[in-house]
Simulated assay, not measured.
Amino acid sequence: MSLYWRIFLLNAVVLLAAAALLLLGPVTVSTPVLLTEAVIAVAGVVVMLAANAVLFRLGLAPLQRLTRAMTTTDLLRPGRRLEVSGTGGIADLIGTFNTMLDRLEAERAASSALALCAQEAERRRIAQELHDEVGQTLTVVLLDLKRLADQVPEPLRADLHRVQETTRAGLDEIRGIARGLRPGILDELGLTSALTALAHEIAAPSGLTVRRTYAPDLPALGDQAELVLYRVAQESLTNAARHAGATKVDIRLLRGAYGVRLTVDDNGGGTGGAPEGSGIRGMRERALLIGADLSIGPAPGGGTRVRMTVPPEKGAA
């Protein structure tokens, strides 16, 4: 039975019951109205309103749950579904909403995968051009400066040495940007070596103390899973160094029946209930790309804990 007919029939029952009491009962209305008759009339109206309120509350409760679900649904936290309850049109509406969420999550996952793959391809291209074109050009400039420094008079030699150091610093920055865009060590030496290099790269200028724990028997992971784990660790370390005011970070990469789990704990100020920024939402997008579970919350000793679990069937090479 549809919601319309349920509400209509329930109200009809209440009104018919009230009419039957007036027609068949001993109660009459005098002119002028007596006090007892007014009390009975007011009591009857109150009973009718209370009955309607209870019936509407029971009938529309599933719709209220559906409204709350619509306002709190986040496609970056998939898998949450409403229990199909109620009768008639309400159950159909909840079932349709769940089906819509299934379709939206599948479409978002597909579009996010395409966008992130295109982003990584563009990063790889830019990093390659920075390394091959700009890096080689600056290397040639350094060689020319060294050759000139050996030929010019002594007063100009110190100036050329300063230019050499400035050029060498620019070359190091270019190489650092290229490594950040696309970590070549990840392709060449694997995930644990890339995480170790990342920890040294971020800890050196910021003064962070990074402790690393890697399981010796990590399974072979696919390129996509390794890249996502690396990016999540990179964003977590960057947040700890730049925004959280942390001095210590603990990185663990372990395996178990759950699959492969990356945990990054810092002793910073925590999130403080602040809304998630683009960096954290980017981590959630990447976790969805490989079907991993990502959680961000307080660390046991204070600070922030970022934990990502890659199931075995999702991270297999």
Rank of each mutant, 00 (worst) to 15 (best):
S2P: 00
P62E: 08
D293E: 14
L10Q: 08
R307A: 12
V39T: 00
G79H: 08
A197Y: 03
Q164F: 02
R81P: 03
G25A: 10
A110K: 01
N11T: 11
P216H: 11
L75Y: 11
N267H: 13
R103P: 00
A246G: 05
R81H: 07
E188C: 00
G270P: 07
A246S: 13
T263N: 00
A246R: 02
E276H: 09
L9D: 11
A204L: 08
P183S: 07
A199P: 04
A18D: 12
P205G: 06
A244L: 06
A51E: 01
Q151A: 13
T167N: 03
T96Y: 01
A41E: 01
N267P: 10
G277K: 07
Q151H: 09
D159R: 04
E83Q: 14
R103K: 02
D266W: 04
D92Q: 15
P216L: 10
Q128F: 00
A199M: 07
V84T: 12
L76M: 11
G273D: 04
G259M: 05
R255P: 01
R242K: 15
K248H: 14
D132A: 06
V249N: 06
L160D: 09
R80N: 11
A225V: 10
S278Q: 08
T139G: 13
A292M: 06
D159Q: 05
R57V: 06
A317M: 08
S193M: 03
A197E: 13
A241R: 08
L34H: 04
V84C: 06
E276V: 09
T28N: 01
E129G: 01
M308L: 15
R284M: 07
P216C: 07
I280R: 09
L10A: 08
P183K: 11
L101M: 14
L171F: 05
R168N: 03
L93H: 11
H200S: 00
Y258N: 08
P62T: 04
V84F: 06
Y230M: 07
P311L: 05
P312G: 02
L289H: 14
I296N: 02
R57F: 08
E173V: 03
R284P: 00
L76W: 11
R77H: 15
T28A: 09
G256S: 03
P153V: 00
V47T: 12
S278I: 11
V210H: 09
M48Q: 15
E285H: 14
L60N: 01
P26M: 01
V306W: 10
Q128K: 00
P78N: 06
A178R: 03
M100H: 09
G282R: 00
M1A: 07
P219S: 10
L227N: 08
A169S: 12
L21Y: 14
Y214L: 13
A241E: 11
T73E: 04
D92H: 15
A246C: 05
A194N: 10
V47S: 03
E276P: 01
P205W: 05
V54A: 11
P311F: 05
G303S: 11
Q151N: 02
L208C: 15
G89R: 10
D187S: 10
L3K: 03
G273C: 04
V47D: 01
T87N: 08
L34A: 13
R281V: 09
